[in-house]
Simulated scan of single mutants.
Amino acid sequence: MQESARPRTGVVAAALDLFARQGFEQTSVEQIAKAAGVSRSTFFRQFGGKEDVVFVDHEQMLDDLRAFFEEHHDDPWEAVCAASERVFEHFVRDLELARRRYQIVREVPVLREREIVTVFRYERLFDQYLRDALPGISPLDAVGFSALVTAVHNHVLRQLLRGGRVPVSALRSALDDVRRRYGVLPGGTEAAPDDVVVAVFPRSMPIAEMSRRVQAELS
């Protein structure tokens, strides 16, 4: 964790503790700031409000994933799955805090609604990346793949946050199945070079991915 993030994590922990003990609505920004040992102005500068303190990790992760997608990736489908794994691993690194936050969100309707919006932001980010990385991709393929990756990720993450022992390999296996369903999980065999190439693709593979693979082989 970066040094600049350590004090912020302390504020998050203090806020979650107060929310758990006296309720979200009954907890004021002033109380959170006092418990965390920061000024009210510092709190507002770092977070903005009580809801924001709960979801600050997601804001940072979304920024990190935007930077990740700006890098070159040979396989855009795999890049989306790798992004999902990065989010999972982030919460595993501070699992106790993540589980405390999950409990608070489940109990507070306004936070549950904010969570739905946050999940959609990940899905939309994945969708836009695929459209940019695979020109000509069907919008249904882009949004469908993004939605399925997001849903699978959230299902596995919830198992972890509810107290299960879920390694990242479980998520990776589930995401491999998503790619397999879309026909974009690379096989283990290499085609021999020849003057004539016969390409066989799964019926479920998006046309944009077929085009990408053909271009990659011919270039």
Rank of each mutant, 00 (worst) to 15 (best):
R6G: 00
R6Q: 04
R8C: 00
R8W: 02
G10M: 03
V11G: 01
A13H: 09
A14C: 07
A14G: 05
A14E: 01
A15C: 05
A20G: 00
R21M: 00
G23T: 08
E25T: 01
Q26W: 03
Q26F: 01
Q26I: 06
T27C: 06
S28L: 13
E30F: 05
I32P: 15
I32Y: 09
A36N: 08
S41W: 07
T42Q: 10
T42P: 00
F43I: 08
F43C: 03
R45I: 03
R45C: 01
F47D: 02
K50R: 15
V54N: 01
F55I: 06
V56T: 11
H58M: 04
H58Q: 04
L62H: 05
L62Q: 08
R66V: 10
A67L: 15
E70F: 04
E70M: 09
D74R: 15
P76N: 13
P76H: 12
A79K: 02
A79H: 04
V80N: 02
C81V: 11
C81S: 12
A82T: 11
R86F: 01
F88T: 02
H90A: 09
H90R: 08
H90C: 03
H90I: 02
H90T: 04
D94W: 04
E96M: 02
E96G: 00
E96A: 11
A98W: 05
R100C: 00
R100Y: 00
R101K: 11
R101Q: 04
R101M: 01
Q103M: 14
V105H: 03
R106L: 15
L111A: 06
R112T: 09
R112Y: 09
E113T: 10
E115H: 10
E115A: 15
E115N: 13
E115Y: 12
I116H: 14
V119H: 03
F120Y: 13
R121C: 10
Y122P: 04
Y122I: 08
E123A: 13
R124T: 04
R124M: 07
R124H: 09
L125G: 03
F126V: 02
F126R: 07
D127P: 07
Q128Y: 02
Y129T: 09
Y129Q: 07
A133R: 07
A133D: 03
P135R: 02
P135I: 04
P135K: 03
G136D: 06
S138N: 15
P139T: 03
V143C: 12
F145T: 01
S146V: 02
A147C: 02
V149L: 13
A151M: 11
H153S: 09
N154E: 07
L157Q: 14
L161F: 11
G163A: 02
G164T: 07
R165T: 04
V166I: 15
P167D: 13
S169A: 15
S169Q: 15
A170H: 14
R172F: 07
A174L: 13
A174H: 12
L175D: 05
V178Y: 09
R179W: 12
R181H: 15
Y182M: 11
V184P: 09
L185P: 03
G187V: 04
G187T: 09
G188Y: 06
G188L: 10
G188E: 08
E190F: 08
E190L: 13
A192K: 14
A192D: 10
P193G: 00
V197R: 06
V198E: 14
A199F: 10
V200K: 10
P202E: 06
R203L: 11
P206D: 09
P206F: 14
A208Q: 02
M210C: 12
S211R: 14
R212Y: 05
R213D: 09
R213I: 12
R213W: 04
S219W: 01
